[in-house]
């Protein structure tokens, strides 16, 4: 690991912000542009679960919910909605749900048209893992709240996966698994019990956790940067997502 890695990441965020995925998509608008098409598809493949969670809350039939989700993304990838002048376009998260609500309003009645077998699917995802957890969802939440929360979980899942892979690559798999719980909060008493398992002193374990927390923050910001079109939006995005978990 080079000391310059971190500063490179920071530099990239600052100077090359225009090249993050969502800003690239926005820049291309509804024109077909190879790189932006790829970026949009990447974003859709990453962030379809929140939309699916949203529609699951609104539509009782699972298959219909799945069909609607797939149909929406197919349309989106054909860039049907990107030309819309929309004040919410600054963030992919807001854009997605706004476009989806419009889509539902217009298309819900024609849902049968999307039933499977109706044509070749161009956007396919595995709904099973999402459905597996569905029963646990609190029905007291609105569809919008479910969308926001699922968005946060999806985002965090990507961040944690990146962090885990990074640490695995540098032989710190065990550190990741034992210290990950301390990213969200450090409780000094527990380092003492965990440190021996890592072959570290208590304070070294605390420092490892601190380093991990710092890297997590960088990755979180980098991941959010992909879905917003200005650097300024990153901090407020973290705040808004955090707010969705406040009761």
């Amino acid at each position: 690991m080079k000391s310059s890695d971190k500063s490179n990441l920071q530099r990239n965020n600052a100077d090359q912000f225009a090249t993050t995925q969502w800003s690239l998509v926005l820049a291309a608008g509804n024109r077909s542009h190879e790189e932006s098409n790829r970026a949009l598809e990447k974003l859709c493949r990453a962030y379809w679960p929140p939309l699916y969670a949203y529609v699951r809350r609104r539509v009782s039939d699972v298959h219909q919910a799945q069909d609607l989700t797939q149909a929406f993304f197919e349309r989106l990838l054909e860039k049907e909605y990107l030309a819309d002048a929309d004040p919410e376009r600054g963030r992919f998260r807001s854009f997605l749900i706004t476009a989806f609500k419009r889509f539902l309003a217009k298309e819900h009645g024609k849902a049968t048209a999307y039933k499977r077998g109706g044509g070749q699917r161009t956007f396919t995802v595995d709904f099973e893992p999402q459905d597996r957890n569905w029963g646990e969802r609190q029905n007291s939440l609105t569809a919008q709240q479910i969308y926001e929360r699922q968005w946060a979980v999806t985002l965090l899942d990507r961040v944690m996966t990146r962090l885990r892979r990074e640490m695995e690559r540098s032989g710190k798999s065990q550190q990741f698994h034992l210290l990950k719980v301390f990213i969200g909060g450090s409780e000094s008493a527990n380092y003492a019990t965990i440190a021996p398992a890592l072959g570290l002193s208590e304070s070294a374990a605390r420092m490892a956790a601190s380093r991990m927390r710092r890297r997590y923050r960088e990755l979180l910001r980098d991941e959010i940067a992909q879905t917003v079109d200005s650097q300024e939006d990153i901090e407020s995005e973290v705040q808004q997502l955090f707010a969705t978990f406040s009761e």
Binding site: R132, N133, E136, R149, A152, V153, L156, D157, V159, M160, T161, R164, K180, V181, I183, G184, G185, E187, R213, Y216, R217, L220, R221, E235, V238, Q239, L241, F242, F245
Partner: peptide
């Protein structure tokens, strides 16, 4: 273990998403 809230079944890497986001705040 940090905030005492119920962990959702799809908690990222098994870690409380609320605490993760809190740690992510400036």
């Amino acid at each position: 273990p940090t905030c005492g809230r119920r962990l959702p079944p799809d908690a990222p890497a098994g870690v409380c998403p609320r605490c993760l986001l809190k740690a992510g705040l400036s």
